[in-house]
């Protein structure tokens, strides 16, 4: 197997942010992403996703390290103060580096 290292940026946040967030990802050059609905509990209490306003999403982006860092910085600056949001970086191995 011929594996290459890339960075996985995972963002978990309020579903209300989805449109804004995706626009940011696009401008900052994320090559692609995967979104799923999420539930859980954190600093802002239980986020049950029982209905619209309590919905949460998890966005996963696999990209080069520098893009991931740029995205993370941007998110922290823009949204951390006022929104329920967590993001973290991890190293992952991918098979087709040209995709990411």
């Amino acid at each position: 197997m011929n594996a290459h290292t890339r960075t996985l940026l995972t963002v978990i946040c309020e579903a209300a942010l989805e449109k804004k967030l995706l626009a940011d990802l696009e401008t900052l050059g994320a090559p692609g992403w995967t979104i799923s609905d999420a539930r859980g509990r954190g600093g802002r209490g239980v986020r049950s996703a029982g209905w619209d306003t309590e919905g949460n999403i998890r966005v996963e982006i696999i990209c080069a390290r520098d893009i991931a860092e740029r995205l993370a910085d941007h998110l922290q600056e823009q949204y951390y103060a006022n929104f329920a949001m967590v993001c973290y970086l991890a190293q992952v191995e991918v098979l087709r580096p040209e995709k990411f």
């Binding site: 309020e14 209300a16 942010l17 804004k20 619209d52 306003t53 949204y79 103060a81 006022n82 929104f83």
Partner: peptide, 15 residues
Amino acid sequence: SYIAVPAAMRLALPA
């Protein structure tokens, strides 16, 4: 309101 306004306020007045 509990549908339209919360969504709009979340984006317009995040604080």
